[in-house]
Design a protein around this nucleic acid. Sequence first.
RNA 1: GGCGCUAUCGUCUAGGGGUUAGGACGUGAGAUUCUCAAUCUUAAAACCCGGGUUCGAUUCCCGGUAGCGCUACCA
Length: 385
Amino acid sequence: LLRSGAAYRCFCTAEELEAVRRQQMAAKLPARYPGTCRNLSPADIEASLAAGKPFVIRMKVPAHGNTTFRDELRGPITFEHTNVDDQVLLKSDGFPTYHLANVVDDHLMRISDVIRAEEWISSTPKHILLYEAFGWQAPRFWHMPLLRNQDKSKISKRKNPVSLVYYRQAGFLPDAMLNFLGLMGGGMPADINNATEKFTLAEMIRHFDIRNVRPAGPVFDLTKLRWLNGEYIRALSLQDFCAALRSTVLADEYLSAIANLIQTRIETLGEFGNLTHFFFADDIQPAPEVFLPKNRTPEETLAFAVEQLAVLEATDWTHAALEPALKALGESRSWSVKENFMLLRAIVTGSTMSPPLIESMIVFGKARTLDRVRRFIDAQRKSKK
RNA sequence: GGCGCUAUCGUCUAGGGGUUAGGACGUGAGAUUCUCAAUCUUAAAACCCGGGUUCGAUUCCCGGUAGCGCUACCA
């Protein structure tokens, strides 16, 4: 690439580039590499090299013209070269960026069809230019729509549980999840199984046609997933239903972790449920008299819960990490350890009396705990309106 | 800000120059039921806006608007 002039060494420092970017932003100009090193003389390059200056390798996007490629779902898409930045191909540490690695990799692996998310559309002209510079045949591109939150923003875990682990722990059946996902974005014929919208993996493999995928980003709607999951649960034989329970909410591993927390706290086995129901419930909504600390308003309590959530999201799911993180938050907001932990206890367990909080949260799992705190916050916000 | 993508009930979608614009979830009403679910019946609910093309546009074209994405020595 360097030899053919499709790429060049760039000796600009990160600080210089950052300064330029800020100026461009301030002037409401598109943030773009200013081209400082695009046409250095061989002597300049030798001098910088000899001086041991670090450099990156950038692609030399043609100054004029445009690149058009075909997206198999949307048709031709054109980008003016003036809108394509001189992408860094090789970082100063010698490692390639995604753009270079991706193109080389896919070529070497003889990839025929690149199926990736929509967010890559704007990078595709860079990739096409690279294939051309190498003299390689570019693959076909299929850019898939992005899943959305209820408010249509790009799906995020702040607004939706996005980890499959959460859905498994919360008791969604893999077949139901698969079916539901297959329903999103098109690709499946409408008349399958008498238009019941229910189909198996095998049927999906047989009937799915990527050419029918719709380019608009669908909203990930839990309501319909729950309905579908209910259908799948009802369709199970009693035996399979029990097996499903035993492999998830009643799994040995989960049960023994819970038992370990309450063994010293009960006098009869019959009390097991009293202390542990929050481990098995989907939704827990404590009443104000349970979660509201004395001398705290609902508003400041809710605000503090929001901060607890942020801390929980950012913290490793271990006792060693969680305890100091939560205490640090309480300290910085003048919430006593007691108020702090009691609020979280109420949110997670629904009660002021429970097995040890952090241990319980660890057993319950990060994904489900975060979900529970989010639901609490949502419910409180709604009740205020 | 620039560039790009997208646009059918609240949501997931079918359809496509002439249709009562179809289905599913959810919602309302009713039936059934010891309760709650489930089940059955039923109702309300959509082609983003403005031009153009056309005998006729929700469908094709253009513009606007809105949403989203990208705008890194991240992927």
